[in-house]
Nucleic acid binder design. Structure first.
Lengths: 228, 228
DNA sequence: CTATTCAAGCACAGTTTATGCCAAGACGGA
DNA sequence: TCCGTCTTGGCATAAACTGTGCTTGAATAG
């Protein structure tokens, strides 16, 4: 639905490499964030919530391995894709990279094209489940046509309402934390008041007129069809 | 570790390689199916529906590339993981492999260990299953849904109660000191009275209505299912 | 075996917090 | 400008959380 390029964070202490990768990724339509050491990478990752992170191993102030391990220990980054990039090509490093929870481990030198194709391969797989039509019981959400149907009845939702519903319905039963919702629907950097989410939820509940969004106090919301 | 039991199809025309890979994957707990050419690979893929397929490029009767392309064109295999294995290490082949829809492209010679770690990396992400669900006997704690089930019965816990239970249940039998619990559930800086923990424990015991939290006087609490 | 002691259990009540809901303003496109 | 959408702040309410004071019970010492 959205040609909104995925957000990629690159961390490397060599400016040349950062430049080259940034250029190539930007051309491909990605949004690129750059970090020049481990600590900066961690900080930017938390702040920007990128979809994919490329980490060089040899970096000052925390190596790529360390950063990877730290990120993976946080639930927020359990689903973030991580590629480790390194000059080392020995088996032990390779294994260690995957042990740290990396999704791919690439040895330098590497052509930008190959790296991009690996990035695409990872993203393709992770977001493949973005089915454009979600069906749950009598409810049908068509992301492409921006349409919600219930019992064959068309229901008209505003943009934010729709995106919010689509997000919740994309994983029925799963609880979405408030800040997850903010990140996904509004974007990581946007700041909106606490009440905004509630109001949209209320409108969805009103319009759908069925009990399908459960609130988990202190945590977030989840989509759930009549589990009477 | 985990009950993997994933089904893997290997296709290569060199019997030696088949043997080596089969051995190593079997040791890791995978179920292995072997094919010695492209057509056989296709046939076995359809028949056995493996979770992951490893394809050598150089094979008689359809190359790995061709097999990959054919598989990807069928909805049944849209989600099947595919690794392409090859002696060619040039950029063009690399790119072509990903273009065909492969999830990973590995150049020979490759150590079985590295291949296995790549296999695991792919499977880990695709079947990103249940480290978010803790199951102990009839009790089931789903962190993703923020839900506790006992005997199929849903039990609703408040946030702190849930986090507390999840913590204790994360290591059954292990005793958690009071200050450990405070750190994990409340946060290191927050200061709350001594009785607070007791109260929450009591509520959990009430709601679950089973004897699963043992108190170790003077030390802390531990989770333990009625080893009557 | 009993008394002592102190951690933990317990009920209740006060406080805090999250969310629901409303109404009104801001924004933006036709 | 009008109209639908988005956002915000205030207020009410229900739920969650925490502290108090008392009771219970288990370990220990005598």
């Amino acid at each position: 639905m959205e040609p909104k390029g995925k957000k990629i964070l690159i961390a490397d202490d060599e400016p040349d490499i950062l430049e080259i990768l940034e250029y190539n990724l930007t051309v491909e339509g990605f949004t690129v964030i750059k970090a020049k050491d481990g600590d900066e990478a961690l900080h930017l990752a938390k702040q920007q919530q990128p979809d994919l992170i490329i980490l060089d191993v040899m970096m000052p102030r925390k190596t790529g391995m360390e950063v990877c391990q730290i990120l993976r220990s946080q639930p927020d980054f359990a689903n973030t894709l991580i590629i480790i990039l390194t000059a080392l090509n020995d088996e032990a490093s390779h294994l260690k990279g995957f042990e740290m929870g990396a999704d791919d481990y690439v040895s330098k030198p590497i052509s930008p094209k190959v790296l991009i194709s690996r990035v695409n391969a990872l993203l393709r797989r992770s977001f493949r489940s973005d089915d454009s039509i979600i069906k749950i019981g009598d409810l049908q959400i068509d992301k492409e046509q921006f349409l919600v149907k219930y019992h064959g009845q068309d229901i008209i939702l505003a943009k934010k309402e729709f995106e919010l519903l689509a997000l919740l319905a994309s994983k029925p039963g799963r609880v979405f934390l408030r800040h997850e919702i903010l990140n996904q629907v509004w974007g990581a950097d946007v700041i909106v008041g606490d009440r905004t989410i509630d109001v949209h939820i209320r409108k969805i509940r009103q319009k759908l007129n069925i009990d399908c969004i459960t609130t988990v106090k202190g945590v977030g919301y989840k989509f759930e069809l009549g589990t009477t």
